[in-house]
Amino acid sequence: MAKLNTGNGTRLLKDSGLDAAPVPFDSLPVIDLAPIFNGDPDTKTQLATDLRRACTEVGFFYIKNHNVPQSVIDDAFGTARRFFAQATDEKMAIHVAKSKNNRGYAALLEENTDPTARGDLHESFDMALEVPEDDEDVTAGAVLYGPNQWPEDDGKFRQSVEAYYAEMIKLSHQLLHAFALALELEEDHFDDLVDKPLATLRLLHYPPQFGEIDDRQIGIGAHSDYECFTILCQDKISALQALNTNGEWISAPPLPGHFVVNVGDQMARWTNDLFTSTIHRAINRSGLERYSIPFFFGPNYNAVIEPLESCVDETHPARYEPITSGSYVNSRFAETLAHYDPSKEYKL
């Protein structure tokens, strides 16, 4: 049985190869978010119940009725395809190593989410909250805040990506309200902790893998995400797999009109592991190029992540020491990103 080190400790994985169990998509829960928008108390209660069950039993689910315009989604995917089709030199002009706050392009194999593996077979572009260099948190050393890098002379790229980012921010606040209700808290419980969130949008391109595949070098190696939750939009190519409680890989194929959401390490810490931070991976054996857009939503840099009082009792003592959101994410980036050193000085 293989071991995988995550930010929340070591997890065990069965030696199950590269295949995922061919189960129907509805083997992963589908959560209807409409109640969080329409404000009806009774339907909100049902939403909270459904979400709590999904987070405790699976940690991985689809959401529908999310209110994100399809035109914004389509435009973002078109932008991703156009960006990654450029020559390497053009993409490297905004390489992430030129940014001290992890914004920009990264090439194939520059990320290694599973430290026991040989690098992830994807290329990426990352952006996050646009924060000026003279911002008080930036000058105080909150290294994950700062300005984004953008392709020169391509205003359409920035417009498209920022439009998608804005929709994800709105959706994330509503989804976090649903999480609060699922934890039997006031709906706005987390609001003061996410008014300047560490929220990252990532464009991903996966080349196809052919023939015999080394399980130590796949699209994205087995890992858990670092933030509170991830909202993923997939194209039509299925590659995502989630690890269920039996240690089996379950396929999470794209479903039109839906996003896939998974619980991250910080939410698992907040809930004292009541909510499951799900191990997942991606393997593109379709023979086609694959694109996806994950959005990682976490609290403010200096927000303290520690088990909620409601999730701790004599039977379930606190499993985690308090840590700030920024410190936690920095520690995970330093372990998995070849270019990342939060103590290093960069020149933009």
Rank of each mutant, 00 (worst) to 15 (best):
M168E: 01
E162G: 06
D214A: 07
E212H: 12
P197T: 08
P197R: 03
Q209E: 03
E162R: 05
L181H: 03
G219E: 05
H173V: 05
H177K: 14
D192Q: 14
D214S: 11
K196R: 15
F229L: 09
L204D: 14
P197W: 05
H223G: 08
E227V: 05
L204R: 15
E167N: 13
E186S: 13
F229P: 03
H205N: 09
Q217R: 13
F179E: 05
L183T: 02
D191R: 05
Y226C: 01
L175R: 12
R202F: 13
A180P: 11
S224V: 15
M168Y: 04
V194L: 11
L201S: 03
L183D: 00
Q209K: 09
F229H: 10
E184V: 02
Y165P: 04
L193F: 14
K196V: 05
I213A: 01
A199Y: 04
H205M: 06
D192M: 11
A163N: 10
L193G: 01
A180L: 08
A199M: 08
Q217F: 09
F179K: 03
A180Q: 09
A182G: 04
D195H: 15
D188M: 02
D215H: 04
T200Y: 14
L203V: 02
P197L: 04
L183Q: 01
F190S: 13
L175C: 10
D188Y: 03
G211R: 08
L203D: 05
F179L: 10
F210I: 01
G211W: 14
A178P: 07
K170S: 12
H177T: 08
K196C: 00
T200Q: 14
L201M: 08
A163P: 05
